[in-house]
Design a protein around this nucleic acid. Structure first.
Lengths: 357, 357
DNA sequence: CTGAAAGCGCTTACAG
DNA sequence: CTGAAAGCGCTTACAG
C-alpha cells in the first residue's frame, strides 16, 4: 500500500549499475554487444523494481503505440465474433485494440447522416496515435473522404465487408459468389422455380448486400426455367415485415425466399405467419450469417454460416503485416473468407401446387 | 495527398506569432490574461494548420490520458448495453474507453483459473496509462489482490455487479432486494407455495447470483405457508438443463421456478419440455435480466428487466467524478440501480392439483 | 562493448 | 500580459 512512485528507467539503470541508454536497449530485447552478465543484471533489476515501460513515452519516440483503432459495434453475433477474432489476434501480438462505435442496440444511428460523428471518432483514435484502423462498412464510408489525410499520416486501414468502387485499403470480405451459388443450387435442386430475394437497404455502406443479391440473381439466372425477383427495404431499413408481406402476397408468388441476412429472414418468418404460410411446406427460406438466433427460430433456419472469427483474425493479421514494415508498399489485398451452407429445417421441396395462382 | 508532416504546437505558435507556451495555454482553453485578439489568432492558426493535440505527450505531462480501461465482454445483451452506456457517457466527456476481455462467445474462459491472464490485461491497460478502470465481476476478482498496486498508482476503480466482503472501490449494482420482493410477491399472489430457485454457480465472482438467490429466499420465507428450495449449477456452470430436470422431477415438485438469470430460465424451459410440463399451466417461470432472447421464448418469459444502459452510464459517471479531483478522498460509494418486473406469459396461477404427488 | 547528449512534442513553474 | 527554460520518461544517433 506504499505510495512509492512508479519506477522509471533511470531507477533500473542505477540499480543495475549501467547507463540509461544501455538499460533501454537491453530491455527492448536488443542484447546488442552487451555482456550476458550485464543483460541479466538489467533484466533482474527491472523485475525487482517492477518496472514497466511507459508506452506513452515509447510511443512518442518510436512512432508506434501498439494499439489499433477498431470501429465496429457489438450489435449482433456476427460483429461480436469479428471483434473477438480481432482481439484475439491482436492480443497475441501484444497489440491493444481500441473499439469505438455509435448508437446502441435500440437506437441504431443513421451513419450516412452522421458522418461528422464518425470522423470525430476516428480523430479521437488518431489523437492517441493508434498505429492502424479496422473499420466496418459505415465507418469506411464516413472515412472515405479523409483517405488522403490518413494516407499522409501513414496509418494502414483495413475494411471489413465493404467493397469500394476504387479500393483504397486492404479489405476482408466473404466469398459471396460461392455462397450464392450454393444457395441457388440448393433451392433449384429442391425444385423451386420462382425464387424471391429480400435484400437490405443497399445503402452505400451496404455493398455486401448489393453484392450478395446480385451474385444470387446471377446464380439463379443460369437455370433456364427459374426466375428470381428482388425486393429491398426502405431507406431506414425498418420495414422488413412489410416488404416481406408484399413480396409473399403479390403476383410473383415465390416458393422460396433468399434473405441477404438472417435479420431479413426473420422478417419473412413473421410475414409468413401473418399470411398463414407454413415453412417449409408452402415456403422455403434461406438466410445468411447464421446469427445466434437462427437455430432457435421455428423452424430452425437454413442459412449460410459466415466465419466472423476468421474474418476478424484475418483483418488483424493484415494490419499486423502492414505494420511489420516490409510490406508497407505492397499492393492492396482483398482477402476472401469462405462461408458454409447450413441445412436446417426452413427449406424443403417446392410445393406441388406451385403453379397455383 | 501531400506527405506534409503532422503540425506541431511550434508551427501553430509561429503561424500566430506567439510563444509556444502561450499557444499551449490558449489552446487548452485557459485564456489566461492574453488579449482576445491573441487568442483568436492562435485558435485560427491551429484550425488552419489542422493542428491536433498529441494526447500521448499531454498524457505524459499532465498524468491524464483521457482514457478509461473497461474490462467487460460483449457476451450477452446485458453486458452489451452496459458497454453501450459506458461508451456513451465517457464519449460525452471526451474520454475514450478501451475495452478488453478474454475468450469468446463459444469458449468462455474460467476466470478463477485464468487470473494471470486477467492481470496481464490490466497491465496492458496500465502501460498505456489509463486514468481509471471499470471492471465486471470476474476481473474484479482477478484484480483484487493487486488493489494495493493500483491504489498506490491512484487509479480509480469501479466494479459492476460485484459485492466484495470488504469493499475496495466504488461499485454499481442492481437493487436485488426490491426485485426479489417483487418476484416473490408476484408468485405468491398467484397461489404458488412450493417455489424453486435455480441459481448460477455462485463462484466468488458471481456474488450477484448469491445475493439474488438469498434475497429471493428471504422474501418468500416471510410467507408462512410458502416454501422455497434452491439449486445451483456445477463449478463449470454448464449443467443447467440437468439441474433443472432434477429440480422439476424430484420430491419437491415446485409449481414455480425463479431463475437468477434468463440463461438459467432457458434451461428450465428445456427441462420442462423434456418432462412434458406446460408453461405456465404446470409450471410458472420467472427469469432475470430481460436478455434479448427472453421475449422470443415460447411462451415469452416473465422476467426482471435490469437497466444495463443506466448501469453503464452510472459506472462511467462515478469514474468521471473521481477523476474530477475534488471527490478524490470521499468514501466509497455503492450505487443501486432499480430493476422492473416484466409480466409476460410464463407465469400463471398455481395449478389446482398442486398437491398431487 | 558502453555512455553522454540530444530529441520526441507537449506542459508547467517561474521570471520579467 | 507574455516568453525562455526546464522537464515528463523514454529512444536514438553518435562518440569513444
Amino acid at each position: 500500500m506504499s505510495q512509492s512512485r512508479v519506477p522509471r528507467l533511470k531507477d533500473v539503470a542505477e540499480e543495475a549499475g549501467v547507463s540509461v541508454s544501455a538499460a533501454s536497449k537491453i530491455l527492448r530485447g536488443d542484447q546488442g554487444r552487451f555482456g550476458d552478465a550485464t543483460c541479466r543484471r538489467v533484466l533482474d533489476a527491472a523485475e525487482r523494481l517492477g518496472w514497466r515501460r511507459n508506452l506513452l513515452v515509447s510511443g512518442i519516440q518510436t512512432g508506434r503505440t501498439q494499439t489499433v483503432g477498431v470501429m465496429i459495434p457489438p450489435y449482433d453475433s456476427f460483429w461480436i465474433n469479428v471483434l473477438s477474432g480481432i482481439h484475439h489476434r491482436l492480443s497475441e501480438a501484444d497489440y491493444l485494440p481500441i473499439t469505438v462505435w455509435q448508437g446502441d442496440l435500440d437506437h441504431f444511428p443513421n451513419f450516412e447522416a452522421d458522418e461528422p460523428e464518425g470522423v470525430r471518432q476516428i480523430n479521437r483514435l488518431l489523437d492517441r496515435r493508434v498505429d492502424a484502423l479496422i473499420l466496418w462498412p459505415p465507418f469506411s464510408v464516413a472515412y472515405h473522404d479523409h483517405l488522403a489525410d490518413l494516407a499522409s499520416k501513414r496509418v494502414p486501414v483495413v475494411v471489413i465487408d465493404h467493397r469500394a468502387d476504387e479500393p483504397y485499403c486492404d479489405s476482408v470480405v466473404t466469398n459471396e459468389a460461392l455462397a450464392a451459388k450454393t444457395v441457388a443450387k440448393h433451392l433449384l435442386d429442391l425444385g423451386h422455380r420462382r425464387i424471391a430475394c429480400i435484400s437490405s437497404r443497399e445503402s452505400k455502406s451496404q455493398t455486401w448486400a448489393l453484392e450478395r443479391r446480385q451474385q444470387f440473381e446471377r446464380a439463379v439466372s443460369f437455370h433456364d426455367e427459374a426466375e428470381v425477383r428482388s425486393w429491398r427495404l426502405n431507406h431506414a431499413g425498418t420495414n422488413g415485415v412489410e416488404v416481406a408481406t408484399e413480396l409473399l402476397s403479390g403476383d410473383f408468388r415465390p416458393t422460396a425466399v433468399f434473405a441477404v441476412s438472417d435479420h431479413e429472414a426473420q422478417d419473412v418468418y413473421d410475414a409468413a405467419i401473418l399470411l398463414g404460410l407454413s415453412i417449409p411446406g408452402d415456403l422455403s427460406i434461406v438466410g445468411f450469417a447464421d446469427l445466434d438466433f437462427a437455430a432457435g427460430l421455428t423452424p430452425p433456419l437454413s442459412t449460410v454460416r459466415q466465419r466472423p472469427r476468421e474474418i476478424g483474425v484475418e483483418a488483424a493479421s493484415l494490419v499486423l503485416s502492414r505494420l511489420s514494415g516490409d510490406q508497407e508498399n505492397l499492393p492492396l489485398v482483398e482477402s476472401k473468407i469462405e462461408a458454409d451452407f447450413v441445412l436446417r429445417e426452413s427449406t424443403g421441396p417446392a410445393p406441388r401446387d406451385a403453379d397455383r395462382g
